[in-house]
Amino acid sequence: MTDGSAPSGDGAAGNRSHRFDRLPATTEDRRVPDRPTRTGVLEWWDERFGVDPSVFENHTFWERGSGKIWAFAGESPSPVDIEGLGVAFLRTRREHWKPTLEAVQRFGGHATRNVMALSRAEAAAFLAGEDQERDWDGDWGYLVVAHELAGEREPLGVGLYVHGELRSQVPKGRRRDFRED
């Protein structure tokens, strides 16, 4: 497997904002400097959340724009210049990688660590975008935030835990205010 530096045509390897390039399997296969690898992505989900790499065995990972990683279950050549390819999955541009709400809702049920379970009232505050003071003996950083729905723990979104505070990372367009309900 190679990364998306086109075998012919445009030549210069790098990120293009409207093109999806498949991640290289490992650093040895990498031709675009600093591009994350499939192995790196799998290790991150395993180390951070305990998600077994087999969960993603039917998905390929793609970069569109710098550090924006998408997960796709179908088949496509690389690179491909289209409007969407699976779901936006992970941001890798900064030092601390950040999963998307969509990735956490879709795959976070497999997480075995760094999952913070909230009560219904706390979940409503989180969904409304509110930050909350909380005790937490797990890692600082990005967490899977979950609550119980229909008898099971269900991942709701991404929280950032720092300095005794859970900061809601629910994007503005996905927030809802159920606090009065």
Binding site: V80, V87, A88, E102, Q105
Partner: peptide, 26 residues
């Protein structure tokens, strides 16, 4: 598609009358 967690969809912007199979040729 994202809210519903669909990961097998590839989205193209084109007139369906002239839909090209080319972008997905292996």
């Amino acid at each position: 598609a994202e809210r519903l967690g669909v990961t097998n969809v590839a989205i193209t912007h084109e007139d369906a009358r002239n839909h090209s199979l080319k972008p997905f040729a292996a």
